[in-house]
Amino acid sequence: MVQDDIKSNVLTTTLESAINWGRKNSLWPMPFGTACCGIEFMAVLAARTDLARFGAEAIRFSPRQSDLLIVAGRISIKMMPVLIRIYEQIPEPKWVMSMGACASTGGVFDTYSVIQGIDQFIPVDVYVPGCPPRPEGVVEGFIKLQDLVGKEKLADYAPAPAK
């Protein structure tokens, strides 16, 4: 009798996968929307695409409360120090999605004032192509990121060895 109860009511898992399951289904994004991609990101949040279906409706504009930085739009040389600062303010664990061509590579703006890809300076986990990406594309990128979060190893979060 007791045996059966345990079988039907208790799930055994590892701590790692339980934590990852929780993390990946409740990512709190912080949109760093600067340009056109910011508008498309609004479309991702709005009724038709609705990112809430993937557990990411809690948009936080404070870096200290979020764990996913979505860089949407071109980053100028004046903005880059701000972006670096915001990235540093997000507590671990944190992930970065580079949305659109401009954030990933500079896009069409091959000029003196646009950073040619934010990944030169901050680590990026998922790149979403498009100028701007369709909302479906962003959702695809988001699912890819969820897979990534699901595969995290807790052991990786040991502090870095002193250099």
């Binding site: 600067t34 340009a35 903005m79 701000v82 069409v108 703006f109 000029t111």
Partner: peptide, 25 residues
């Protein structure tokens, strides 16, 4: 100026039809 991306400089390097793609943004 936090989104200054050099549109006008870019316009000097693109021909009349190419620049239309830049005006979108």
């Amino acid at each position: 100026g936090y989104l200054h991306s050099g549109f006008e400089k870019l316009g000097e390097d693109l021909d009349f039809n190419q620049y239309i793609t830049i005006t979108d943004r």
